[in-house]
C-alpha cells in the first residue's frame, strides 16, 4: 500500500521558492533517505509533509487519505477539514534534530503525556507500554530522570520512544544525529536500524552516508529545492550524477 504520496509539491517563503515541483511516493515498509547539501530544502519537505508548514502547490496523501490538494476552481491548495487532518496526523511521528523533549517532564512522562491526553490510553496502561518502549531503546534506568540529566544520544532515544509510543505508521526523521557526537550517533543509528528490521516505514533526512546506504530501500538526493537524482543505494552510489558524486565525495573525504 502506498503510505505516502507527494505530488508536485511547491513551497515558498514569501517570494523565495524553496521547494519546486517535488514528487515522492513511499510504500508500506519502505525506508527512504533524503540527502543533499544544507539549504537544499530537505527539512522544508519534511515540515510540509508533517503539516508544520502549509504548502503553496501540489497535493499530499498519507495512507491514501487526502491532506491537501491543488484545487483548480479555487486556484490554490485546499486542505481537508480539521477533524480529518487530526485523524491523519495520528498516523505519523516526527523526530527532530534538536529532540525538543519537554524539559519539565520526566522521561516517562515525556512519553506518556500524549498517550494519555491525546490517544486516551488509561494512565496505568500508558505507563506500562511506555516503559516497554523505553527499555527496548535501552532507557530502562532512566524513567524518572529529567531530560537535562541525559546525554544527547539518550535524549534523542527518548524522543524516538515518545514518537513510537503513539504507534505511528510512518516515522519521519530530520537529521536525528546531527546534534550528536560521533560516539552517541552510533546508538541512535542502531535504534533506527532496528526499526527498519521491524519494517517500520521511515523517511530519514541524514548526512550519514554509510548508514543511508546500508539501510535505505531508496535514496533521494535533493539540491536547490528539486530532486536531482533518486534510486536504490546501488544505483546512486555506483552510478552517481556528477553533483551527487561531488556531494558524497565531500562527505566521505
Amino acid at each position: 500500500m502506498e503510505y505516502l504520496k507527494v505530488e508536485h509539491l511547491n513551497k515558498k517563503f514569501g517570494d523565495l521558492e524553496v521547494i519546486k515541483d517535488i514528487s515522492i511516493s513511499v510504500e508500506q515498509g519502505e525506508v527512504v533517505s533524503i540527502i543533499g547539501p544544507s539549504g537544499s530544502g530537505k527539512s522544508t519537505v519534511l515540515r510540509c509533509i508533517t503539516m508544520l508548514e502549509k504548502i503553496n502547490g501540489g497535493s499530499l496523501y498519507i495512507l491514501g487519505e487526502k491532506v491537501c490538494a491543488d484545487d483548480k476552481d479555487a486556484g490554490k491548495v485546499v486542505y481537508s477539514d480539521k477533524e480529518k487532518l487530526k485523524k491523519i496526523k495520528k498516523n505519523f511521528g516526527l523526530v527532530f534534530q534538536q529532540f525538543h523533549l519537554f524539559p519539565h517532564f520526566t522521561v516517562l512522562r515525556n512519553v506518556t503525556e500524549a498517550m494519555i491526553h491525546v490517544a486516551g490510553i488509561p494512565k496505568e496502561q500508558a505507563e506500562k507500554e511506555a516503559k516497554e518502549v523505553l527499555s527496548k531503546l535501552g532507557l530502562a534506568e532512566k524513567y524518572d530522570a529529567y531530560p537535562y540529566q541525559l546525554s544527547g544520544g539518550q535524549q534523542q532515544r527518548v524522543s524516538i520512544a515518545r514518537a513510537l509510543a503513539l504507534k505511528p505508521k510512518i516515522l519521519f526523521f530530520d537529521e536525528p544525529t546531527s546534534a550528536l557526537d560521533p560516539e552517541l550517533t552510533v546508538e541512535v543509528l542502531k535504534v533506527i536500524k532496528d526499526l527498519a528490521k521491524q519494517k517500520m516505514t521511515m523517511i530519514i533526512v541524514t548526512h550519514e552516508m554509510e548508514f543511508a546506504r546500508q539501510l535505505s530501500d531508496r535514496i533521494i538526493f535533493m539540491e536547490k529545492g528539486v530532486i536531482r537524482q533518486q534510486g536504490t543505494p546501488e544505483e546512486l552510489f555506483e552510478n552517481p550524477d556528477e553533483r551527487v558524486k561531488e556531494f558524497i565525495g565531500k562527505l566521505t573525504m
Binding site: T50, L52, K89, G93, F96, H100, F102, H117, A163, L166
Partner: peptide
C-alpha cells in the same frame, strides 16, 4: 519559549489549549 516545544506538541497531537496548559505555561 522555543518554537520547537510548540512543534513537538503539535506533532504529538496536543490541542492548542493542551499545548498551552501542559507544555508552555508550566515552563
Amino acid at each position: 519559549m522555543p518554537v520547537g516545544q510548540y512543534e513537538a506538541a503539535y506533532i504529538l497531537g496536543f490541542s492548542k489549549t493542551q499545548t498551552f496548559t501542559r507544555i508552555i505555561m508550566p515552563q
